[in-house]
Design a protein around this nucleic acid. Structure first.
Lengths: 191, 191
DNA sequence: ACCACATCGTAGCAACGCTAGACATCCTGC
DNA sequence: GCAGGATGTCTAGCGTTGCTACGATGTGGT
């Protein structure tokens, strides 16, 4: 009984992850509008109702994908920040890593930051990985500066702005490096 | 024949605008996901196929709403900029007007800047009203500065970032004024 | 007055998210 | 070892979506 139900639980967890990965791959390959419950079910080789035994619905699946993305992004930003020898260049490196993340995985980024979500961001029940990503920006500023939370917010928002507008073609996709330079030098520079 | 077909054409144009207005109001009241072709048809008191004799589909209707929004935004920004007596404060005023526009009409803003679109932004066939809105930002900077296009791009992007993230609850909706201050002083301030 | 044409509504299609109930399969207790 | 119960999966279907083919209606020109 114990060993068997453990195996079942293991299989169930694997399938849970399989659904998330399949949704993410499908979204990245053909966009979120192509991620239907039918296609997703076919892809994981189960019937539709199985999806609903793991998630409350399509939105919950997208939320799970987004959460996975938050963890990966926070990890990536952290690594880049710690690898920066000079603190003054840390923000630049983190910013570039952020833009690269958005450009390399547009569908994932969309699920995280653009699609409507009920994930709470600046609340008590905010997932840790979510706060962790933001904190990487905060850590790039002087701990003694009382406005460093605000500076991090605005830096993040500006990066999100150029990432989102470039992704949808609303500003020319080239020239992101130049925009990043401007943001970093103006915001992180001495006031 | 002439007078009658002219009247028909007039009625047709009125209905065209009626559809756009109805879609916009419905989206603003209940969100874009509530704007279905059936509900929209009922609201304008015609049957569904009539919508398709005016627009290529739902996306085209949303595009028409967005274009109307671009014209209004450009107009609003222009007025605010010209009303600014002191040039150094023009950018601040334009920025606040932009954020107000986004906050007051979230569905319209969403159609303009967040939803997938095939409207070209930085191309030859860019609608005039669209370029006009961007130019209001450009005009806030020194005409002799070779980087003023870049400065306008980044300013606009940063404003879009805080508008979009605040609208979806990803940053606290309060404190936009503080963020605006920071963006304006850091970007428009002397480098 | 009559025909031709344009215009509009009814009805229907495939696909969507989601769910109820039948079916099969496996574990448990005697 | 074997029936009984519980767990898990699939088939089938509901209501709604964007969109369209086709028939009815009514107007305009000759």
């Amino acid at each position: 009984m114990s060993a068997i139900s453990e195996r079942r639980e293991r299989e169930r967890a694997q399938r849970h992850q399989l659904i998330i990965t399949a949704a993410r791959e499908l979204a990245e390959a053909e966009g979120w509008e192509a991620v239907t419950t039918r296609r997703l079910a076919e892809r994981v080789e189960y019937s539709q109702p199985v999806l609903y035994s793991h998630f409350d619905g399509k939105d919950a699946i997208m939320r799970a994908v987004a959460l996975e993305g938050f963890a990966e992004l926070a990890d990536r930003l952290r690594r880049v920040r710690l690898a920066s020898t000079e603190p003054s260049r840390a923000l630049h490196a983190v910013g570039r890593a952020y833009l690269d993340f958005a450009a390399e995985q547009p569908a994932l980024y969309q699920a995280m930051f653009e699609l409507p979500t009920d994930v709470k961001f600046a609340h008590a029940e905010t997932p840790a990985s979510l706060r962790a990503g933001f904190d990487e920006f905060v850590s790039c500023f002087d701990p003694d500066d009382p406005r460093r939370e605000l500076l991090a917010e605005v830096t993040w928002s500006a990066l999100h702005g150029i990432a989102a507008l470039a992704k949808s073609g609303r500003i020319p996709p080239g020239g992101q490096a130049e925009r990043l330079d401007l943001i970093v030098t103006r915001i992180a520079g001495t006031p």
